[in-house]
Design a protein around this nucleic acid. Sequence first.
DNA 1: ACTGGTATATATCGACACGATATATAGGCT
DNA 2: AGCCTATATATCGTGTCGATATATACCAGT
Lengths: 193, 193
Amino acid sequence: MLELAILGLLKERSMHGYQLSKQLTETLGGFWRVSYGSLYPTLRRLEKRGAVEKVFSDDVGRRKNVYRITEDGESLFQELLQEAGQESWEDNRFRVRLAFFKYLKPDTRIRLLERRRAYLEDRLMKIQASLDKTKKQIDTYTLSLMTHGEDATRNDIAWLDGLIATERRQVVTDGNGGKPKRRKAIRRKEPTA
Amino acid sequence: MLELAILGLLKERSMHGYQLSKQLTETLGGFWRVSYGSLYPTLRRLEKRGAVEKVFSDDVGRRKNVYRITEDGESLFQELLQEAGQESWEDNRFRVRLAFFKYLKPDTRIRLLERRRAYLEDRLMKIQASLDKTKKQIDTYTLSLMTHGEDATRNDIAWLDGLIATERRQVVTDGNGGKPKRRKAIRRKEPTA
DNA sequence: ACTGGTATATATCGACACGATATATAGGCT
DNA sequence: AGCCTATATATCGTGTCGATATATACCAGT
């Protein structure tokens, strides 16, 4: 997962570990904690794999390891981004994926959004099943926890539906399946209200 | 974290690993995946620490390792439940804590709820700071992600406020700081609407 | 009685992420 | 000179994850 995030950021511009850490905790900071204990090992893992390489710059070569993404890295990025594994739809994983959605074709985007939606629907059913089964013998706090979880999940699904609808509208509007030049802003605030 | 969850369940009744797994994925199932790869090692860890012990039952002693919580386990449970560590307020950790709130005194409950609230307020500020800083040069998907995250966090805070308010009302109503006999149902649906 | 499927039950593996901590250097302030 | 904060990389131990292996129990269909 970290590999995907790192490659995605390096696609925009080459950076060293510390910069990556700053950038990551800034964009996903509210939800994700990227520790050095995972960042630096992951960087070296990616380098060993040939997905990134060190940049040798004359002026700032002092104590910084600036990494650049390679061709192999680009294809690894695409592979990770579209990965269909079962666990890939958990909250944080999906958030990271969404942050790099611009690198995907519209129909792939829709596919991923719907996969996430199915995951959330499944969660919803599990919550409701638990509520049904253990109803009336459950304590107040657990009940509140589950009910709130139900609401929050529904909100998430509604938000996803908004994203999917917007995506479909675009596919219809500009018929070319390629990379769109300009796109309308995503309608927000409504789905989460 | 798993230790807390296991001890909490064993407080209610003695169980073996498989039953714990069922129970855990049922209550927190929508949000947490408890794998055997962490469950069984944790059980043995707890046993080594003396927090739980095997129950030797004649009839079902065949192939089941039934565990019972010990006195040491009870105090470890209380310790873990009230733990003030920085990372203890992350989403899943808090959910587990809340599931065992009934074992806490009312004022301790309020303290924990307010700690969680502060954590979410902090997240909210981080999100807003990111939105301000990188505004207008951020892609549509990341923007939507952050805005939705903002909304969801606000919802969570509102829900927490409801819980806190209910808790305070009870403290005032029945003046005794001890364990309450019967309590009003927590007003829900409103805070999350 | 045989077979197959599902639920029960425990265990372990490698990979990865986490939190904490150590170690430097650079730059700024007083 | 002394001190603080930001920059920058590295590593350690521990915990969790997903996958997988391996049994046994029980019930259904044939």
